[in-house]
Amino acid sequence: MRKDDLFDNITGYLRKAIDTLFILSPENTSLGILFGLIVDGLSEIFKPFLINYSNLIDLTKIGTMRFIVFGIFIFNLPLMFKRPKLPQDIEIALALIKDAKRKKGLSNLQIKQMYLNLFQKILNGFKI
């Protein structure tokens, strides 16, 4: 493997990994963190009131990090139901390029050229 291709692959996988860590939507994840911290603060403020029901539910035992995780979960839930779906033709074209990359062992530059052709076609509005 060439040196350029190596760096290309490493940085490509890193980007994908970090985006996956943010569950593909950094805004929603950060809003979830904000929500978790606010709920944590509210649970602390209303502690004297909530302590009457402590044998039923004890919010103060949950902890800040669990509130944050809960917030991230809540805010990323809508993304599960509305994933961006590409048209069928584009999906097939992408699958073909991916297949060519895997089986024929083309270099990254050639693969990029194929993707560029695809983008050009989509931009020009032709049916693929």
């Binding site: 350029d4 760096f7 290309d8 940085t11 490509g12 980007r15 994908k16 985006d19 590409l86 584009i90 992408l94 390029i97 991916k98 990254n108 530059l109 693969i111 990029k112 993707y115 560029l116 695809l118 983008f119 989509i122």
Partner: peptide, 15 residues
């Protein structure tokens, strides 16, 4: 470096 757009993930992003 001109690497952007050479992976399936980034192609989907651009499209």
């Amino acid at each position: 470096k001109g690497y952007y757009g050479s992976t399936d993930y980034e192609a989907r992003e651009i499209i």
